[in-house]
Amino acid sequence: MMTDSPMPAPAAAAPTPETPAQLFAYVLQLADTSLILAHRLSEWCGHGPILEQDLAMANIALDLLGEARSYYQYAAELEGQGRTEDDLAYLRSAVEYRNPLLVEQPNGDFAHTIVRQFIYDCFHYHLLLQLKSGPDAQLAAIAEKSVKEAAYHIKWSSEWVIRLGDGTEESRRRVEKALGNLWRYAGELTTPSATEKALQAAGYLPDYAPLQQQIDAHAARVFEEATLPVPQGVFMQKGGKDGRHSEHLGYLLAELQYLQRTYPGLQW
């Protein structure tokens, strides 16, 4: 299911004086993305459709949380200002968060969560495959570890899309509704922000066009098996990666950051 079309060899890295700051911003974006999605998934804990799937979702949330922590720790190191992983996660406001809009969308029903996860996994898995052979050693090491987890995630969410698409009438109706609501956030994942463009130019990030092809190929296979039409002609939203979020993120952060904000500067 995951045979990948060949990618062009990565361009040689050509760092500029701005690269370290851009790398910091980008790693933070990766961290925010993993954290917010993990947070959303963790909201399911104790409320899943069956015990076995409760465990599965918690596992994915734990993988993403672990990945987020690796990125935050690396971002803190890149910044070199003495901030910790928790400072970065708990003491930045919504406009400073750089996650794409997709991952902050509420869970909705199980179909909605699966579709959100599937869209993200397609991007995440294929991105990590590239990052693990990128020029930044630390980022490559994190990607190397995370790609194994992401390979499991994409398998899990792909199979669920197929089950729900080709299951009952009700499951199909729900998965179509979720696609109708969430597909408009897919485009942002592979639309480079200014930071990403600069890092692509410096050879630190892959070109997103071939990445998009891999994603599309995988999604097409899954949709076909799920007997679902591939969504077409959807207007793509963006803004999360530049700090312009949907209203949902504020509430999420209010909950996430509550203790750190109420009692500043303490150890827990």
Partner: peptide, 13 residues
């Protein structure tokens, strides 16, 4: 297939 994945999630944490 799901049984194998569930086993992985339940019994090999």
């Amino acid at each position: 297939e799901m049984a194998i994945q569930n086993a992985r999630d339940v019994y090999t944490r």
